[in-house]
Amino acid sequence: MDINKLNEIAHNHSIILIKDSFQKFPNRFLVYDDKRWGCKLFLNYKDNFNNEDFIKKHLSGDLKIELEDIKLSYLGQRIHEKYSESAKKRKVYCHKFYIADIKKFPDKIKQDSFEIDGKEYQWLSMPELETDKDVQKKNYDMVRFVKELV
Protein backbone atom coordinates (compact mmCIF):
# COMPACT_ATOMS: atom_id res chain seq x y z
CA MET A 1 0.00 0.00 0.00
CA ASP A 2 2.83 2.42 0.89
CA ILE A 3 4.51 1.68 -2.43
CA ASN A 4 1.30 2.56 -4.28
CA LYS A 5 1.03 5.78 -2.28
CA LEU A 6 4.55 6.76 -3.36
CA ASN A 7 3.17 7.21 -6.87
CA GLU A 8 0.55 9.65 -5.57
CA ILE A 9 2.85 11.83 -3.46
CA ALA A 10 2.90 15.44 -4.43
CA HIS A 11 3.56 16.89 -0.99
CA ASN A 12 6.99 16.40 0.55
CA HIS A 13 7.71 18.32 3.73
CA SER A 14 10.47 18.37 6.31
CA ILE A 15 9.22 18.64 9.89
CA ILE A 16 11.73 20.29 12.23
CA LEU A 17 11.56 19.51 15.93
CA ILE A 18 13.23 21.90 18.33
CA LYS A 19 13.21 21.20 22.07
CA ASP A 20 13.68 23.82 24.78
CA SER A 21 17.18 22.54 25.54
CA PHE A 22 18.02 25.85 27.23
CA GLN A 23 15.91 24.59 30.17
CA LYS A 24 17.29 22.33 32.89
CA PHE A 25 14.65 19.68 32.00
CA PRO A 26 13.69 20.16 28.34
CA ASN A 27 10.17 18.90 27.75
CA ARG A 28 8.62 21.31 25.25
CA PHE A 29 8.69 21.67 21.49
CA LEU A 30 8.66 24.83 19.42
CA VAL A 31 5.47 25.26 17.40
CA TYR A 32 4.00 28.16 15.49
CA ASP A 33 0.46 29.35 14.92
CA ASP A 34 -0.35 28.52 11.30
CA LYS A 35 -3.12 30.81 10.04
CA ARG A 36 -3.95 28.66 6.98
CA TRP A 37 -4.39 25.48 9.02
CA GLY A 38 -5.89 27.27 12.03
CA CYS A 39 -3.75 25.37 14.52
CA LYS A 40 -0.29 25.05 15.99
CA LEU A 41 2.24 23.16 13.84
CA PHE A 42 5.81 22.05 14.24
CA LEU A 43 8.19 24.08 12.09
CA ASN A 44 8.14 22.73 8.56
CA TYR A 45 9.45 23.42 5.09
CA LYS A 46 8.53 22.04 1.70
CA ASP A 47 11.19 19.47 1.05
CA ASN A 48 14.07 20.59 -1.13
CA PHE A 49 15.48 17.16 -2.06
CA ASN A 50 16.35 16.37 1.55
CA ASN A 51 18.79 19.28 1.60
CA GLU A 52 19.82 19.90 5.19
CA ASP A 53 21.64 23.11 4.22
CA PHE A 54 18.34 24.44 2.81
CA ILE A 55 16.57 23.64 6.10
CA LYS A 56 19.32 25.16 8.25
CA LYS A 57 19.35 28.34 6.15
CA HIS A 58 15.60 28.77 6.58
CA LEU A 59 15.71 27.99 10.30
CA SER A 60 18.49 30.53 10.73
CA GLY A 61 16.52 33.20 8.89
CA ASP A 62 13.16 32.45 10.50
CA LEU A 63 14.42 32.25 14.09
CA LYS A 64 17.33 34.73 13.79
CA ILE A 65 19.83 32.07 14.89
CA GLU A 66 23.39 31.84 13.64
CA LEU A 67 23.74 29.15 10.97
CA GLU A 68 26.71 27.54 12.71
CA ASP A 69 24.61 27.17 15.89
CA ILE A 70 22.20 24.72 14.20
CA LYS A 71 22.82 20.98 13.98
CA LEU A 72 20.24 18.78 12.26
CA SER A 73 19.70 15.08 12.85
CA TYR A 74 17.42 13.00 10.65
CA LEU A 75 14.87 10.94 12.60
CA GLY A 76 12.85 9.20 9.90
CA GLN A 77 9.92 9.65 7.58
CA ARG A 78 6.23 8.82 7.36
CA ILE A 79 4.07 8.47 4.28
CA HIS A 80 0.41 8.97 5.01
CA GLU A 81 -2.81 10.44 3.76
CA LYS A 82 -4.53 13.24 5.60
CA TYR A 83 -6.95 16.09 5.09
CA SER A 84 -5.27 19.35 4.11
CA GLU A 85 -6.89 22.26 5.93
CA SER A 86 -5.47 24.77 3.45
CA ALA A 87 -6.45 22.85 0.28
CA LYS A 88 -9.69 21.46 1.76
CA LYS A 89 -9.04 17.97 0.39
CA ARG A 90 -7.21 14.76 1.25
CA LYS A 91 -3.57 14.55 0.18
CA VAL A 92 -0.77 12.04 0.44
CA TYR A 93 2.24 13.42 2.30
CA CYS A 94 5.79 12.28 2.76
CA HIS A 95 7.02 13.90 5.97
CA LYS A 96 10.71 13.74 6.85
CA PHE A 97 11.43 14.42 10.51
CA TYR A 98 14.52 16.17 11.84
CA ILE A 99 15.52 17.33 15.27
CA ALA A 100 17.43 20.59 15.39
CA ASP A 101 19.97 21.03 18.15
CA ILE A 102 20.46 24.76 18.76
CA LYS A 103 23.73 25.67 20.51
CA LYS A 104 22.80 29.25 21.41
CA PHE A 105 19.21 30.36 21.80
CA PRO A 106 18.61 34.12 21.57
CA ASP A 107 16.91 35.47 24.72
CA LYS A 108 13.74 36.28 22.80
CA ILE A 109 13.27 32.62 21.85
CA LYS A 110 13.58 31.51 25.47
CA GLN A 111 10.22 33.12 26.28
CA ASP A 112 7.14 30.85 26.53
CA SER A 113 5.75 32.60 23.47
CA PHE A 114 7.23 35.15 21.10
CA GLU A 115 6.86 36.69 17.67
CA ILE A 116 9.40 37.01 14.87
CA ASP A 117 8.56 38.75 11.58
CA GLY A 118 4.83 38.51 12.29
CA LYS A 119 4.88 34.76 13.00
CA GLU A 120 3.75 33.67 16.47
CA TYR A 121 5.74 30.90 18.16
CA GLN A 122 5.16 29.00 21.39
CA TRP A 123 6.85 26.29 23.45
CA LEU A 124 4.40 23.44 24.21
CA SER A 125 4.77 20.06 25.88
CA MET A 126 3.39 16.87 24.37
CA PRO A 127 0.47 16.79 26.83
CA GLU A 128 -0.39 20.39 25.86
CA LEU A 129 -0.31 19.51 22.16
CA GLU A 130 -2.34 16.36 22.76
CA THR A 131 -5.10 18.26 24.54
CA ASP A 132 -5.27 21.23 22.15
CA LYS A 133 -8.64 20.85 20.33
CA ASP A 134 -7.41 22.28 17.03
CA VAL A 135 -4.28 20.12 17.03
CA GLN A 136 -6.40 17.05 17.90
CA LYS A 137 -8.72 17.72 14.98
CA LYS A 138 -6.23 18.82 12.31
CA ASN A 139 -2.74 17.57 13.13
CA TYR A 140 -2.85 14.86 15.77
CA ASP A 141 -1.16 12.35 13.46
CA MET A 142 1.97 14.50 13.48
CA VAL A 143 2.00 14.66 17.28
CA ARG A 144 1.69 10.87 17.38
CA PHE A 145 4.57 10.48 14.89
CA VAL A 146 6.78 12.80 16.94
CA LYS A 147 6.03 10.81 20.12
CA GLU A 148 7.11 7.64 18.31
CA LEU A 149 10.35 9.20 17.02
CA VAL A 150 11.70 11.07 20.07
Rank of each mutant, 00 (worst) to 15 (best):
D2K: 10
H11I: 09
N12G: 11
S14K: 02
I15C: 04
I15P: 02
I16M: 05
I16Q: 01
L17W: 08
L17F: 10
S21W: 13
K24Q: 15
K24V: 15
R28Y: 07
F29N: 06
F29D: 03
L30F: 07
V31L: 05
D33P: 04
D33S: 13
D34M: 09
K35F: 01
R36P: 00
K46P: 12
D47G: 11
F49S: 15
N50L: 10
D53A: 11
F54Y: 13
I55D: 01
K56S: 05
H58S: 10
L59T: 02
L59V: 04
L59W: 01
L59R: 03
S60R: 05
S60Q: 10
I70E: 03
L72V: 07
S73W: 06
R78G: 08
I79R: 00
K88A: 08
K91M: 12
Y93P: 02
Y93D: 03
Y98V: 03
K103S: 15
D107Y: 09
K108S: 10
I109E: 02
K110R: 11
K110H: 06
D112K: 14
E115Y: 07
I116A: 01
D117N: 12
Y121A: 02
M126C: 02
T131S: 12
D134F: 14
D134I: 09
V135M: 01
Q136P: 06
K138G: 05
K138H: 12
N139T: 04
D141Y: 10
D141Q: 12
M142P: 00
R144Y: 03
R144S: 12
R144H: 10
V146F: 03
E148Q: 11
